[in-house]
Design a protein around this nucleic acid. Sequence first.
DNA 1: GTCCAGGATCGGA
DNA 2: TCCGATCATGGA
Length: 280
Amino acid sequence: MNDDIFTFSSDCFNIGQILECGQCFRFDKISDNEYYITAFGKKLLIKQYSKEIMLSPTTNDEFEKLWKHYFDLETDYSKIQEILTANDFVMRDAVEFAPGIRLLNQDTWECLISFIISQNNNISRIKKIIENLCCRFGDESSDGSFSFPSPKILSEAKIKELVQCGTGYRAEYISRAAKKIHNGEIDLEDFKSLSTKELGDSLMKIKGIGRKVADCITLFSFARKDIFPVDVWSKRVMEHFYFNGNEVSINEIHQKAQKLFGCYGGYAQQYLYHYARNFL
DNA sequence: GTCCAGGATCGGA
DNA sequence: TCCGATCATGGA
């Protein structure tokens, strides 16, 4: 037995599906059942054998305080799947395709910057840009990984330096957001007490954050699990299966999602997004 | 060479 | 309120 390994068992947990479904960007695949992730300043190795999941290095205490919530292990996903698939054959296929998806509870600041970068971009490039930012502006830890750069360090970075990381025209957005948060004009901790509508509106006051990016931030790092972000893929899959292939407005997608999935919209969207990216 | 990516902003109708 | 052009970048 090794002290820095924590093992647990879970149904509805597949590390590959969790990480490859587009909700987070700081991970590296070693094999189908073995990944590194970096979150909350820690680099973690995750190995999965059937329902057994091993995390290292970590401790019992750290698991309880950090990883348990990060992997959303307090939530009963089999119950959510039951509700979503009860009367919906599309959701039945989407859930069956990736029943091990879980919604991670990510750091708000990292999530905010990551999804500003995500706009009009693809996942492999988003991963690379974030890695560049971390290597250049983050702090190196003893395990050789780099922390996500703080608001202070990004607010002090030159636009040219941000562009050199591959951020392109988004560099200005990153810089402005970092300044607003570093100078205290925006307090992401305070945002946690806002209603979902107020939270979205507040996020969209930041230049570079529109409806979709705000929705991703509120779903992935403020635990508003009813939110259904509409990007090109979730729009495509909704139009294909729920609008007879007809093109509709983003507002219509939101209304339909609300009607179909209600407070489980965030989970539904993640199953559908992942399903669509592999089959549409 | 063109098209696309977990889109947002801006100006003009 | 809605529409279209534009934005920086790299992979397909």
